[in-house]
Design a protein around this nucleic acid. Structure first.
Length: 792
RNA sequence: GCCGAAGUGGCGGAAUUGGCAGACGCGCCGGACUCAAAAUCCGGUGGGCCGCGAGGCCCGUGUGGGUUCGAUUCCCACCUUCGGCACCA
């Protein structure tokens, strides 16, 4: 027996797998019989180095990949790169070089590290967001959205750094200041691109029922979409000769609406500035309010606002109530205007108290009924909500309405390193899409990635100025690029048909592979990537490009691997990178360890204490399996064989049904411990084969080597072992005997004994007798084949 | 403030349907091997108490209650930690 040399055997088997194309997946044959399984982990951003979070994510996926493959499924398990985005651009600005060079270098490095870990990936299907062969189709799909009116431009506030003359992403704003220069960030309005995801709000909620997802993820999405049922009510503003609509979920409180408030951005405000005697004050207020960013407004100590000098008519009471403009009312929600009911709304009350406005109680909170509300007085709140809306509707002053918290998805980025938006602005034709046959719109070279008051792409005049595709007149290209969430909203479709030059993907292939059967990724993407991808697939479905409505049938969230937390830096100093760890202990040890330390769906503080234990286990496994191979008896019965069958059942259930990845390792350790007591015992060979076979998804290299030592080959394509049910049936068991719920003795008993027999055994125990001690047994509880409890 | 998740030995964790708390591993202790150490192997290891010993008793899953013959598991309240959201009418 040679000593266990992880480096050598890992290199050896990785070469074999590559030579045999073991983990590459061909397109389905016509009349394909094998069931498909699409295994996918979230698209990684190619930072320079793999970290332990990646190792957890992809090892988990790898275990499932091997497990499903060995169940005879045709498994697709691809990999690619979310390779556009700010980090590469920042690195280019900081250190020089081109974002493309930096990105390509990082991809090469991280890909090498991935190979080092031995993951079973179909590297033929690799895609990269920044590859023109990919982003031409991102652009093409964008055009389909544009044609349907689902991609549009509108003015919206952005974070603007007045010093750097640039738009900042939310994560670049730290406490209201620019992360780079520290200048106070302002809100500025710009024309930007949006996807009309709000049009799919109901569909996104409705189709949750099609998903086998963690409940909390669905809850997060549901809250994010924020569907509220209520009503739109009309308030007459006589001075302007218009009706202004408000959204409310508390139509029952309309009798208590003592003032009316518009958001500063509300379109009517301009009219008011013109027509109101207080026009100047309104204008001043609006200017100040609009310069404040959303978070600043929310964080303000006290609510601010300005009286417009106008009044609106409360449709329920007929009273004239004052109209105010205040920035605690958000233009983005509802109608951008509210009826203020300070008697029953905390925010309205705060405002009313500050400005001395009337507060009127119209609901008796204790009894839950309306008061001082005309004909509706004494009616319960829920009933009154409907009744009031019905009444106002009959007067033409209201209607039931639904409002959503969800906003449209702004995907313009005033950045260089992203997918160009294939649009040309023409003086005579307006917004003109670049025709499909002129795609891709390639990302041009620029001299400086820093935006100086305009997006970086706009600095390349030659690129920027193009003839209008429609009329041939002078045109200007769109200089914004796309949010990287656009790239990742359809990559899982491209994997199904990654080298298609004629279309983003063939419908036949995506309909075969999709939906993703098992998706694995962080819960941090609950309201971003996961929602956007669902939206895209719904649109593509309506366009007839795909035959399904949901992209990810089943979802699993791995926990966070925290590194460098106070706990660990104190105890151990530096953290070792995964590939260094692999150099020290081997890839198999790293893979086993990351899954062994705890449940994969829970957060963990990374520590290397314990990796030695895994390395020790692998050396033990190596030695014991070799011993069993030399002298092991291949009997398929006896205690060791039974233990092996129990382990098969446990591991299969844990991975396949429970989605638990740490306990199977413990189960195999137990089997190996038992085998180690006598590697030449009856059934030892079978136990060794079982242990090797079961550990293969976790530690494929050493498993393959040991499988050879046992005289077999190609473990990676062997069927997953099946537990022999007859071996699992026990004839005897250890009867637990309790007195008053406390365990007092354990005795052997036969399976299937009657309650009376079990009680008799219990009473026969001297230890039990000592506790019963002549007392009256008042009750006996018997759990067949398990336990007896005597109550005295 | 609101929503969610979680609190189990010195440590990471296990206990799947209300039925033997602490599997498996780390660490630690003892032993074997060794001139010695490392590695390896064997044994022990929740706390307290009683017993020369075999063994026995009590306490114990964040805290306090409850349901139950029986609770880490179910219910109520509270504490702590970690996430997410935060003027959404």
């Amino acid at each position: 027996m040679e000593t266990y040399d992880p480096q050598a055997i890992e290199a050896k088997w990785q070469r074999v797998w590559e030579d045999e194309r073991a983990f590459y997946t061909d397109d389905p044959e016509p009349g394909e019989e094998r069931e498909k399984f699409y295994m996918l982990e979230m698209l990684p951003y190619p930072s320079g180095d793999l970290h332990m979070g990646h190792v957890l994510n992809y090892t988990l996926g790898d275990v499932l990949t091997h497990f499903r493959r060995r169940h005879g499924l045709r498994v697709l398990r691809p990999m690619g790169w979310d390779s556009f985005g700010l980090p590469a651009e920042n690195a280019a600005i900081r250190e020089g070089g081109h974002p493309r060079q930096i990105t390509d270098r990082n991809i090469a490095n991280i890909e090498r590290q991935m190979h080092r870990l031995g993951w079973a990936i179909d590297w033929d299907r690799v895609i990269a967001a920044h590859d023109p062969a990919y982003y031409r189709w991102t652009q093409s799909l964008f055009l389909r959205f544009f044609e349907k009116g689902l991609a549009y431009r509108k003015e919206a506030p952005v974070n603007w750094c007045p010093n750097d003359q640039t738009v900042l992403a939310n994560e670049q704003v730290i406490n209201g200041r620019c992360e780079r220069c520290g200048a106070v960030v302002e809100a500025r309005k710009m024309e930007q691109w949006f996807f009309r995801i709000t049009a799919y709000a109901d569909a996104l909620l409705e189709d949750h029922k099609l998903l086998d997802w963690p409940e909390r993820t669905i809850t997060i999405q549901r809250n994010w979409i924020g569907r509220s049922e209520g009503a739109e009510l009309l308030f007459r503003i006589e001075d302007l000769d218009i009706d202004a609509a408000v959204f409310t979920t508390r139509a029952d409180t309309v009798f208590g609406a003592t003032f009316f408030v518009l958001a500063p951005e509300h379109p009517l405000v301009d009219t008011m500035i013109e027509r109101s005697p207080h026009g100047d004050e309104i204008r001043d207020y609006v200017r100040i309010a609009m310069a404040r960013r959303g978070e600043e407004r929310a964080a303000a100590e006290e609510k601010t606002g300005v009286f417009t000098g106008l009044t609106a008519t409360n449709p329920a009471t007929g009273e004239e109530i004052p109209v105010w403009v205040a920035d605690y009312v958000l233009m983005e929600y509802g109608t951008g205007a509210i009826m203020a009911v300070p008697g029953h709304d905390e925010r309205d009350r705060e405002f009313a108290e500050r400005f001395g406005l009337e507060v009127r109680q119209v609901v008796d909170e204790e009894r839950g009924v309306l008061i001082d509300s005309g004909d509706f007085s004494e009616r319960p709140v829920d009933e009154a909500k409907r009744a009031v809306v019905g009444w106002l509707a009959s007067l033409g002053r209201g209607r039931p309405a639904v409002s959503f918290r969800l906003r449209d998805w702004g995907f313009s980025r005033q950045r260089y390193w992203g997918c160009p938006i294939p649009i040309v602005y023409c003086g005579s034709c307006g917004i003109v899409p670049v025709p499909d046959d002129q795609l891709p719109v390639l990302l041009p070279e620029v001299e400086d990635y820093r935006p100086k008051g305009k997006p970086p792409l706009a600095s390349n005049e030659e690129w920027l100025n193009v003839p209008c595709p429609s009329c041939g007149g002078p045109g200007l290209r769109e200089a914004d690029t796309m949010d990287t969430f656009v790239d990742s909203s359809w990559y899982f479709l491209r994997y199904c048909d990654p080298r298609n030059d004629d279309a983003p993907f063939s419908r036949e292939l995506v309909d075969f592979w999709m939906p993703v059967d098992q998706y694995v990724g962080g819960i941090d993407h609950a309201t971003g990537h996961l929602l956007y991808s669902r939206f895209w697939v719904k649109v593509l479905n309506e366009l007839g490009l795909v035959g399904f409505r949901e992209p990810f049938a089943r979802l699993f969230h791995q926990g966070w691997v925290r590194q460098g937390g106070t706990k660990m830096s104190k105890s151990r100093g530096n953290v070792t990178a995964p590939d260094q760890l692999a150099d020290m202990y081997g890839a198999d040890a790293v893979r086993l360890y990351i899954l062994f330390v705890g449940p994969a769906d829970q957060d963990m503080d990374w520590t290397e204490e314990g990796v030695e234990g895994i390395a020790r286990f692998l050396r033990r496994l190596w030695r014991i399996v070799h011993e069993a191979a030399a002298s092991g008896d291949s009997a398929a019965e006896g205690p060791l064989a039974r233990k092996a069958h129990e382990t098969i059942a446990k591991v299969t259930d844990d991975i396949g049904r429970r989605f638990v990845f740490n306990t199977p390792i413990a189960a195999v350790m137990e089997l190996v411990n038992e085998l180690g007591r006598d590697p030449s015992a009856a059934g030892a060979r079978f136990a060794a084969e079982t242990a090797v076979s079961l550990i293969q998804p976790y530690a494929p290299h050493v498993a393959e080597e040991l499988w050879s030592a046992l005289g077999h080959e190609r473990l990676w394509e062997q069927d997953w072992p099946v537990a022999d049910e007859s071996q699992l049936v026990r004839r005897t068991f250890e009867l637990v005997i309790q007195v008053n719920g406390r365990v007092r003795d354990r005795v052997e008993a036969s399976v299937g004994e009657s309650e009376a027999e079990l009680v008799e055994r219990a009473m026969a125990s001297p230890r039990v007798q000592a506790h019963v001690d002549g007392k009256q047994v008042r009750q006996t509880i018997v759990v067949p084949d398990r336990l007896v409890n005597l109550v005295v």
